[in-house]
Design a protein around this nucleic acid. Structure first.
Lengths: 127, 127
DNA sequence: TTAGTTACTCTACATTTGTAGTAATTGACT
DNA sequence: AGTCAATTACTACAAATGTAGAGTAACTAA
């Protein structure tokens, strides 16, 4: 499922907050970006026609939509091309880049060390 | 500098091969994707007007273009939003995801362990 | 029950993107 | 000099995207 930037921003809210109405989504978006209600509503309509969200229930005159595609599914679709484009398709290149550039807390480092150790063991076991 | 998908694909070639002519770029793209020469040329023209590439020299009637923006600059622009959208802005989340999902070779793991150790040391020194 | 407010639906439009045809130009070869 | 082939330049167009106004319907409070 191909989603535009703005559509992705709106999905972000559905993924975070779950089932929501257009006015609710608008409020969130509006805090970050100066955009009209009808603009947001248009995006929501497009997400609906793409099947990314569905009408769940109605309260008053507000329609509540629930996300249909999972965030992980979209991640799964976009990560490979991102990886390919900017890191020669090699996860380790991206990981190295992140470890270099972004600040990792001590906790992060410990967490990742554990992860790496686990991975190492798994690799060994598979031989 | 905002570049479209296709523009990014073309830049990819400039980044890999350096200064190139449209026919050369076309040959590369055409191996992967069935698209007309003029389509590729249009993208090249757009990249030029965006300032992503510049005319470097002319050979025969072929114009050779050189990349003006660096891949790292574009990476720098796109990585944060990608991170924010799909991994709550936390590099460690993306790293964990990559370590889990993508297969890392033994070499990758060793490489990353070294990296992590270095990072750990740096963190300590900064205190 | 009526005015006010809220939310929806519909329509519209400029810009960007993917796609390509065609015409003009210029080198190259005889 | 004249023709062929390679390239460029120009133009076009449909679809997607970001943006929003206007009109309509429906709840809400007086």
């Amino acid at each position: 499922m191909k989603l535009s930037e703005f559509e992705l921003d709106v999905m972000q809210i559905f993924w975070e907050k779950g089932t929501s109405s257009s006015p609710e989504v608008f409020k969130c978006i509006h805090e970050e970006k100066d955009v009209a209600y009808s603009t947001v509503k248009t995006i929501i309509d497009r997400l609906e026609s793409k099947g990314a969200i569905v009408r769940k229930r109605i309260e008053g005159r507000a329609i509540y939509y629930a996300p249909m595609v999972e965030k992980s599914a979209i991640t799964q679709e976009l990560l490979p091309s991102f990886l390919k484009r900017f890191f020669n398709g090699k996860p380790s290149n991206l990981i190295a880049h992140l470890m270099k550039d972004e600040k990792l807390s001590q906790d992060d480092i410990t967490y990742l060390e554990t992860f790496l150790a686990k991975q190492k063991k798994k690799n060994k076991d598979e031989l």
